[in-house]
């Protein structure tokens, strides 16, 4: 699926899974042409509900469907599911532990052209703080598609964070996915880069650049930011002695925060966090230049790895 936008892979996978599982129902808030839940809507119109531009209402309707035994996939912009509909998510999804799946589209900076109102750079921090919530961030299109059945068949609330755009391909179907279990994407003993989402591909490129300078970086993909694979991270800290986190999210409270918390309690080692510094981003002509401008360039990961190494 190289070259396919993540939203397209997800939309097609959801429609396909809808055929296999009649309990799945899909909701959207007038953005099905953007999130591409439209593919499901076209195939299963009787199991698709367009709620209009009313995201909090959409979450509560999904809660009702879940109480009735259905498996609702709630589609909307990440910025709206994680912010406007947050109270519904906290109380009626997490606290009441209803089986609602939040498919959070256009996450991170991937809606580059609509600007900071539409970016979602705090959603991992917000969702991760909610008891009962599982937070999954696929690295590329293939992986986004592969998560659909796993998320549907897991019993409980899930926040699935999706990019609008094309991510560097890293996943192939032969690699198993398990909620809560990180993946070693590249071995290495000098330093570890812990990455999530679209930054996994960029981190692998950074590891190649580091290798050409004789530095062997291990690359871990943490797709499940919550529950965190603490053991894999502790082991990397022990074996490589320095860590870098990389995420398309603010440096506050996301993957970097989660890893810092885990290291502080297990094996404190030097840690550098690559992410968006504590500021709103801007409107941009494409996602790659925006990510580069926001401190998420491959060279930023390389520099951070060297800093972490120097602090060993």
């Amino acid at each position: 699926m190289a070259g396919v936008p993540m939203r397209q892979a997800f939309g097609l996978a959801l429609a396909e899974y809808g055929a296999a599982n009649p309990d799945v129902v899909v909701l959207d808030a007038d953005t099905s042409s953007s999130t591409l839940s439209r593919f499901f809507a076209e195939r299963f119109p009787e199991r698709f509900f367009n709620i209009g531009i009313a995201e909090p209402c959409m979450v509560d309707v999904a809660v009702g469907l879940a109480l009735g035994g259905h498996i609702p996939f709630v589609n909307g912009f990440a910025a709206l599911l994680a912010l406007r509909a947050l109270e519904q998510v906290r109380t009626c999804v997490c606290y009441a532990r209803t089986n609602v799946k939040l498919a959070a589209a256009f996450a991170g900076l991937s809606d580059y052209k609509d600007g900071p109102t539409h970016h979602a750079i705090t959603d991992i921090a917000i969702m991760r703080a909610l008891p009962e919530m599982t937070v999954i961030v696929p690295a590329d299109a293939e992986e986004a598609a592969a998560w659909v059945p796993l998320v549907a068949e897991y019993d409980g609330p899930v926040y699935l964070r999706l990019s609008r755009d094309v991510a560097i391909p890293v996943h192939d179907r032969s690699t198993g996915l398990r909620i809560g279990r990180g993946i070693v994407r590249r071995p290495g003993g000098d330093v570890t880069i812990v990455a999530t989402g679209t930054m996994v591909g960029r981190s692998l490129r950074a590891a190649e650049a580091l290798a050409s300078e004789g530095i062997e970086a291990r690359v871990l993909e943490i797709h499940t930011v919550k529950p965190l694979d603490v053991e894999l991270i502790r082991q990397a800290a022990e074996e490589t002695g320095a860590l870098v986190t990389a995420e398309e999210h603010t440096v506050i409270g996301g993957l970097g925060g989660a890893v810092a918390e885990a290291l502080a309690q297990t094996r404190p080692v030097p840690l550098e966090r690559v992410g968006i510094s504590d500021a709103f981003a801007r409107t941009a002509p494409d996602v790659d230049s925006l990510m580069d401008a926001c401190g998420l360039a491959v060279t930023d990961v390389v520099a951070a790895a060297k800093w972490a190494l120097a602090r060993k």
């Binding site: 052209k113 609509d114 600007g115 109102t117 539409h118 801007r282 409107t283 230049s289 925006l290």
Partner: peptide, 13 residues
């Protein structure tokens, strides 16, 4: 409009 350095954002700021 839309350039990284342009003050005009996608939506009003």
């Amino acid at each position: 409009w839309g350039d990284l350095s342009c003050p005009l954002q996608g939506h009003p700021d």
